[in-house]
């Protein structure tokens, strides 16, 4: 019988489950933010391309702010100051909001590049066939531009997935936060960070592989 309370205990198999669950949360917050952020970013990119000076003067500087300020500062500021304007969001929702805007800011320039990658003569040819502006956008600019900037977009998506680790500072128990909790208990940082790293790799690798495959197919 021991009189002391034990704070520390070694790494147990069930901790792996704990990390696995956290990895799913990382996947979930990333998938949500990347999807919404990419859609929003595509719209922003189109506005930058078409919007002339209005977008250049208004949208571009705002996006620059979100691209330039470190994500961790954005997260802390938003989480702590949003309640002042009546927005009481939990760590997950706050993380999604900021990661989405951050993704959109990055994707906007990728998307604009994609539209610009479709040369004006190509678009004139499409219009000469009687396609409307939106038909040209949907059937010519989108598929050609997407292929042109797809590798860049994958880079953004994988980056955001890894950056989602920063949402841990708000207390959302994703992969990194879960690792910190376990490290505190087990005092085995090397083992646990290695496992966490392996989880991140397992999340990224299929995406890179799939992307490479798609690119290969398009290259035909």
């Amino acid at each position: 019988m021991s009189d002391t309370v034990s704070f520390f205990s070694g790494f147990a198999p069930r901790d792996l489950l704990f990390l696995g669950e956290a990895a799913l949360r990382t996947m979930w917050i990333s998938a949500l933010s990347i999807t919404m952020g990419s859609l929003l970013g595509a719209v922003f990119g189109w506005m930058l391309y078409e919007g002339k000076w209005v977008a250049t003067l208004t949208l571009a500087p705002v996006l620059d702010v979100f691209r330039s300020v470190p994500l961790i500062i954005q997260l802390v500021l938003f989480y702590n100051f949003a309640p002042i304007v009546g927005l009481n969001l939990d760590p997950f929702a706050s993380g999604v909001v900021i990661l989405t805007i951050y993704t959109a800011a990055l994707v906007a320039n990728v998307a604009r590049g994609g539209i610009e990658a479709v040369e004006p003569p190509m678009r004139r040819a499409a219009r000469s066939l009687g396609m409307s502006y939106w038909q040209d956008m949907r059937h010519v600019v989108l598929p050609i531009g997407l292929r042109a900037v797809f590798p860049a977009w994958v880079g953004v998506a994988l980056g955001v997935m890894k950056d989602s680790a920063l949402v841990s500072v708000l207390g959302y128990v994703e992969l990194l936060k879960a690792s910190q909790i376990l490290i505190t208990r087990t005092q085995e940082p090397f083992l646990i960070l290695t496992i966490a790293g392996a989880f991140y790799f397992a999340l990224s690798y299929p995406i890179s592989r799939y992307a490479a495959k798609l690119e290969q197919r398009w290259a035909q």
């Binding site: 003569p121 190509m122 004139r124 040819a125 499409a126 219009r127 000469s128 066939l129 009687g130 396609m131 409307s132 010519v140 598929p143 050609i144």
Partner: peptide, 18 residues
Amino acid sequence: NKLRQRLGMVFQQWNSFP
């Protein structure tokens, strides 16, 4: 868009959709 359906056009650059 409707009018252009009556007027086919072929350009110097062929602009096939790749």
